[in-house]
Computed example of a mutant assay.
Amino acid sequence: MHTAKSGQARKAKHCAELLGTGPSLDELVPALSLLGEKLARVLPGHLARFSGGEPPLVRIGMPMDCNLASIQADIENLASHTLMAVGAEGRPMLATFEAAPVLRLIDRAFGGRGIVPDPLPETFPLSAELLLTRLEQAIAGALTTVFGGEQDHTVRPLRRDTSLRYLNPFDKREDLLQLSLEVEEPGFDPWSFSIAFPQATLAAAIAVPRHPVKRRDPQAAPNPAAEPFGSMPVPVTAVLVDMTIGFSRLSSLKPGDVLPVAVARSVPLQVDGRTIATGTIGEVEDRVAVQILQAF
């Protein structure tokens, strides 16, 4: 009996969760940014059936840290929340669809131009429930591909509810990282949804760099710091705020209005739309600056 207890104690002592050796939220942000870029390339093929067979353009916002309470606070009207599970262990994640984009897609499915009823209904019609089922399957398929397509990373929808309280996907105080996705199609207003991942789900589903990348032999490739490359100007964009706003709200903006925005925990630096580094906002000699934390 004493031997069995000792063996269990040794096993617990080396458990990564107890030692806190898993990736931190700050380490997961750049990994999620890269995952978002892959999702923007894969998801259009899964959404093509909603746009007449033509793959739409998908734009991914910056990863934002949040929790269930902040997600609920950002929703002004009716919304549907879907609990999804990743892998055989059923690691949870959350997809959120606000009513206006869903009803816009339904109107288009019946031959309309994507008109949203005003006022919005208090509950989703049956047609919306059927559309949400197809959307969930499309998103689950795209995420499964992005995660590697292995059985351990298969994503599947579990259940949905209009109330986060009743859905109860995970602890309301748990730290989450959220991606906002906007879908654009020619001739129609864009529509959007969001996906939120608990820290443990992301850590298990995506590869997070834990060690410095080995440098290549300088003789094996051209040196980017040498001419003719060194003086070549390359536009670099620091994305401080990336937000989605409803078209009705956008059309009613006037001087003096205030839009509350959340600055991301980790600011991406992008070249031609691809994230090359992340950092935090600071100040140098009375000028706004970005301190690089990670580079890829």
Results as ranks from 00 to 15, higher is better:
residue 229 F to I: 05
residue 137 Q to R: 06
residue 211 H to S: 09
residue 90 G to F: 00
residue 96 T to P: 04
residue 36 G to E: 08
residue 144 T to Q: 00
residue 218 P to L: 06
residue 63 P to F: 05
residue 212 P to S: 08
residue 98 E to H: 11
residue 48 A to C: 02
residue 67 N to W: 05
residue 175 D to T: 10
residue 230 G to D: 07
residue 268 P to T: 05
residue 181 L to A: 04
residue 43 L to I: 02
residue 208 V to N: 02
residue 289 A to M: 03
residue 131 L to P: 12
residue 238 A to M: 03
residue 182 E to G: 14
residue 51 S to I: 02
residue 161 D to Q: 01
residue 195 I to M: 10
residue 74 D to H: 10
residue 90 G to K: 00
residue 42 V to T: 15
residue 107 D to S: 11
residue 55 P to Q: 11
residue 204 A to Y: 01
residue 219 Q to L: 15
residue 254 K to A: 15
residue 164 L to G: 03
residue 217 D to P: 03
residue 107 D to N: 14
residue 242 D to W: 02
residue 108 R to D: 05
residue 50 F to S: 09
residue 21 T to C: 04
residue 271 V to K: 06
residue 96 T to Q: 08
residue 218 P to V: 08
residue 38 K to G: 06
residue 105 L to K: 07
residue 183 V to L: 10
residue 46 H to F: 10
residue 28 L to E: 07
residue 29 V to Q: 11
residue 148 G to V: 02
residue 109 A to W: 09
residue 221 A to D: 12
residue 268 P to G: 06
residue 181 L to W: 07
residue 28 L to H: 08
residue 219 Q to G: 14
residue 72 Q to E: 14
residue 192 S to Q: 13
residue 238 A to L: 02
residue 105 L to R: 09
residue 59 R to D: 08
residue 285 E to Y: 04
residue 179 L to P: 02
residue 40 A to W: 09
residue 28 L to N: 08
residue 127 S to M: 12
residue 231 S to C: 08
residue 213 V to F: 04
residue 106 I to K: 07
residue 44 P to C: 06
residue 18 L to H: 13
residue 234 V to W: 06
residue 64 M to P: 00
residue 64 M to D: 08
residue 152 D to E: 15
residue 132 L to Q: 14
residue 224 P to L: 04
residue 295 A to V: 15
residue 37 E to L: 04
residue 65 D to I: 03
residue 40 A to H: 05
residue 282 G to N: 10
residue 53 G to P: 05
residue 271 V to E: 07
residue 75 I to H: 08
residue 55 P to I: 08
residue 99 A to Y: 10
residue 54 E to Y: 10
residue 31 A to S: 15
residue 251 S to H: 09
residue 125 P to L: 11
residue 23 P to F: 02
residue 138 A to Y: 06
residue 18 L to Q: 10
residue 43 L to N: 09
residue 134 R to D: 15
residue 78 L to V: 09
residue 94 L to N: 01
residue 169 P to S: 03
residue 21 T to F: 07
